[in-house]
Design a protein around this nucleic acid. Structure first.
Lengths: 233, 233
DNA sequence: GTCTATACCAGGATAGAC
DNA sequence: GTCTATCCTGGTATAGAC
């Protein structure tokens, strides 16, 4: 069995087109969205979301005016307000929808193998590939979370701890099996998470150096593995 | 010679009180600041900066109104405007001043030893300790840089690459001396940087787990060392 | 040096025509 | 379903009294 997951394979596996995501969002928010025709609504939602992510990631969500947004999305102000009832709700919609997808995809990745080494590799690859496919969302989420109400901030922190937990659980199991050496899984988990996040936070850096996701993934796996593997005799 | 730098030692070495920083800033911006009495100006600048960092780090610089700021700083709107001529200039002042200090302090840390292992340890410790002393500024800088004009954004990226460079240079020298094994210093440098940044970006996480800077520093040094050290025979 | 009062405008939100 | 026109709050910035 090949342990490495290719980016292309991953992409076709999850099939996360903007359209799919927006359809899901539309169906889940049918009562708060005034538009009833699915085709129209989904199409416009895609444009609104893309525009919002683009503009926000340039200058921040708060600095993006709805006038800017309406131009970028190709809709009037009035039309925008048939899809959300306040700018703040738009923010929450974007974040919530993304969180759901991320959780769903990552959870599916641990399954199918029992070897902690393979699991770890899989999760690292899946996390990086996912953040590559949804880069604007990941960046947005990281930067705008602190502008939410405290209640929602907590949900974002929970989401971070959730993925970290997947990592530490694997490491603990590996320790018990004697595959990994004794170490502080909590700190290691946090460090891995930080390195994974760097990939979508510092796009300018890695793009400038012509580093692909797969290359980065293989580096991270190596970096982590060296830390975890038992002392050679 | 003891290779470890204690946090307390570092703190007294650099002596970076908010007052010192603001005095330096006052002296460097004498012509754009209308107030002439040094004592008055420095005192107020300290309050303005602290207030600005506090409020911005809660909800973002853009979302912080100058009315909020004037209340938090204990000055009237009119008084604020004798210290800077626009909200945007305030942003630039804060970021520029901080960058200068960081650069100065970090550059001083590589000196005094030739062993790459010690140098690396020193730089990691110094970076973490510095970001601990100036945590609000580091967080602010990370989050608000994208709201600057492109010209200033580039300066911030340069600053990031500058510290990364210090790391990669040490690693390369270590490789040449056979102390470190062959590896991609560029990726390793980026990863170390990411882990160092996590310390001031995820305060909530590390504070909740009761992890001290010194503990975190020793973890990072261990993590990195394991990656760099040559294969044992 | 600092305050209060005010000018002025940008942005979020909505009503009502089409 | 979508647009235009308009309301009104709350933001930055400044003038002039103290």
């Amino acid at each position: 069995m090949n342990v490495d997951l290719k980016f292309k394979t991953f992409k076709s596996m999850v099939s996360l087109s903007a359209e799919d995501l927006c359809r899901e969002l539309f169906l889940g928010n049918r009562r708060s969205i005034k538009i009833k025709k699915e085709g129209v609504a989904v199409g416009n939602l895609v444009r609104i979301f893309n525009a919002a992510l683009t503009l926000s990631n340039q200058k921040g969500f708060k600095a993006m005016s709805l006038r800017d947004l309406s131009v970028e999305a190709g809709l009037s102000m009035g039309a925008l307000y048939t899809y959300f009832k306040s700018k703040d709700e738009l923010l929450r919609m974007i974040l919530r929808q993304g969180r759901m997808v991320v959780k769903r995809v990552l959870q599916g990745q641990v399954e199918g193998t029992d070897d902690p080494r393979t699991q770890l590799r899989r999760v690292i690859q899946a996390h990086l590939y996912l953040s590559e496919v949804m880069q604007p969302w990941f960046y947005f989420s990281y930067m705008e979370t602190k502008n939410l109400a405290i209640e929602e901030q907590k949900r974002a922190m929970q989401a971070e701890l959730f993925t970290e937990r997947i990592l530490t659980d694997i490491m603990k199991k590996g320790q018990e099996q004697g595959i990994f050496r004794p170490m502080e899984t909590e700190l290691a988990g946090a460090a891995i998470k930080a390195v994974l996040q760097d990939w979508y936070l510092k796009r300018w850096k890695y793009a400038g150096r012509k580093i692909t996701v797969e290359k980065y993934a293989s580096f991270v796996v190596g970096f982590v593995t060296r830390y975890l593997e038992p002392q050679r005799p």
